[in-house]
């Protein structure tokens, strides 16, 4: 009974257009999850029938995608952790649906990347590559990996191009563009502060991927840069050299005293 109900719910969930408001989807999702609970299929166990497993996986996948569209990263992470045991099942029990799975994993990688959780990002990657995937080739998985590589080496223009419409593998990935843009902009700004003595306003616009000079001025102000005669001057960071010098001497003295003490205990 509950079985059939769940089946209709899943088909309903799948047929929803992506633009459906989140509350509507989430009410469907919670009904589906309740049914799963009744059928005790929230987590896979050896006794769960395969077709129920597939249904449960579909519910979670739909939930994950819906929460990404609603920009709810916490609920997305929850859905992903619920999905993990399903993905680890052997394909004899649950036939793998690779494209959907890679989409979710790719989104998760991108989420980790935008949150700056690089060590988790790489742990996940290590797991993917050890399970025999050619990750770079996949359209969903390759995307966050390429982005990470470009971010690390500093080719921000390529990141910018990759985020444009049409380059993104599917629309859910576009959700992260805003965060990524903000991220690379502040990266560029902090490296510019060190790299250039001054910058003309006009070319800063293209450097920071901003739309107008007015936006440049606003941005400059928020970072505390000085705008004068169409040029941006960066506040030169005059660190207290003297203080550092003193630190250095103190460190040397401490070290030497330490050696003396150690030598004494040895002799």
């Amino acid at each position: 009974m509950a079985d059939r109900q769940l089946h209709t719910l899943v088909t309903q969930l799948k047929s929803l257009p992506p633009s459906t408001p989140f509350p509507e989807t989430s009410s469907l999702l919670s009904r589906a999850k309740l049914l799963l609970l009744q059928l005790s299929a929230l987590t896979p166990s050896p006794s769960t029938p395969p077709q129920l497993l597939a249904l449960a996986r579909d519910v979670y996948e739909a939930g994950a995608l819906a929460s990404i569209r609603a920009k709810d990263s916490e609920s997305f992470t929850r859905y992903v952790s619920q999905l993990t045991p399903f993905y680890e099942l052997p394909s004899s029990v649950l036939p793998a649906n690779n494209s959907e799975r890679n989409k979710i994993t790719g989104l998760r990688l991108l989420l980790l990347l935008t949150q700056g959780l690089y060590s988790e990002f790489h742990s996940e990657l290590e797991q993917l590559s050890s399970s025999g995937f050619v990750v770079e080739q996949d359209k969903y998985l390759g995307y966050p990996i390429k982005l990470e590589r470009w971010l690390m080496e500093g080719s921000y223009d390529r990141v910018w191009k990759a985020m444009k419409k049409g380059e993104v593998p599917c629309e859910e990935f576009g959700v992260f563009s805003e965060i990524l843009t903000y991220q690379i902009r502040s990266e560029i700004a902090s490296s510019s502060e060190r790299a250039y003595p001054s910058l003309p306003l006009s070319s800063t616009k293209s450097l920071l991927f901003l739309d107008s000079e007015g936006a440049v001025i606003d941005f400059a102000r928020s970072r505390g840069w000085v705008v004068k005669d169409g040029q941006i001057y960066f506040p030169t960071a005059q660190e207290a050299e003297a203080g550092e010098q003193q630190d250095f001497s103190q460190m040397v003295i401490e070290n030497t005293l330490g050696y003396a003490r150690q030598l004494e205990t040895i002799v």
């Binding site: 500093g154 080719s155 990266e187 560029i188 060190r194 790299a195």
Partner: peptide, 12 residues
């Protein structure tokens, strides 16, 4: 362009 960003990052 890439080169410029990369060098700037290297300096930072």
């Amino acid at each position: 362009e890439s080169a410029e960003y990369i060098v700037a990052k290297a300096i930072r």
